[in-house]
Design a protein around this nucleic acid. Structure first.
Lengths: 130, 130
DNA sequence: TATATAAATGAGAATAATTCTTATTGACAA
DNA sequence: TTGTCAATAAGAATTATTCTCATTTATATA
């Protein structure tokens, strides 16, 4: 039942990479980051496994920023801020979405609600004119 | 100063198309819809003008659903529901986001907030198992 | 009216993010 | 060792979107 010998397990490394950062990475960021420790990793493997993790609920997709999909290793519900200047995605952990909103949404939509995403867009402190 | 003679103004038609529907259309939906009345419209023109309107703030982008960008002719802030089954995007006009949240977000992010987007994802009534 | 200039468009090529295909590799069991 | 199956690398294929450029249309001007 031992899953891993001396050989690399790319899949585990990809999951650890997404979970070990707060930059809300793109597939390419994961690829370039892993490549430094694991030069023979393939971009297709990164895409394949990110899609798998997303489907399994191990990671979340934030949608696209500047046309590129971004992921989040933190699947607990939380609020995001997206900078339109530098495409940074930042957590706003102090903000919370009232629990009541989801059930209200389900009622109004007449279906089931699985995910609630609250995202603010603007300019981060670095990109704001002084 | 008259802008329009007997000839078609594709640009105006594209804006009217996006504003005249609540399906939150994709570029291709706009193209196919316009083509029925205006067979010589070009897909490039649709994309070109949607990007222009977005930049001018005349329409809003909702990000991608299933890898395809969706637009909204209603730029007033409101809440959306996205069905993961059929990719429908539905307005939830009765729901409102507390105004206080945006200033709270600006404070926590340390920058400026321009847009607040609240989106619920789930299964619509049609796609929900009975 | 004629003409010049700038804006808007159509058609198709180009781009780039993502997905797919296929041969290969590695892990594990018999 | 051998068979089987999952995971992977490499690169081709796909597809939404953007770009190029020649043409058309609108508008200003003489």
């Amino acid at each position: 039942m031992e899953r891993c010998g001396k050989h690399f397990r790319k899949r585990d490394a990809i999951l650890a990479c997404v979970r070990g950062t707060d930059v809300h990475p793109s597939a390419d960021w994961v690829y370039e980051t892993l490549r430094q420790q694991m030069p023979d990793v393939s971009l297709a493997t990164v895409y394949r496994n990110l899609a798998l993790f997303k489907q399994q609920g191990l990671i979340a997709s934030l949608g696209t920023v500047g046309g590129i999909e971004r992921f989040d290793g933190n699947t607990a519900p939380h609020v995001h801020f997206v900078c339109a200047g530098c495409d940074a995605v930042i957590d706003l952990p102090q903000m919370t979405v009232p629990q009541s909103l989801s059930s209200q949404a389900a009622a109004e939509a007449g279906g089931q609600v699985h995910v609630c995403q609250l995202t603010f867009t603007g300019l981060c402190s670095r990109c704001s004119p002084k």
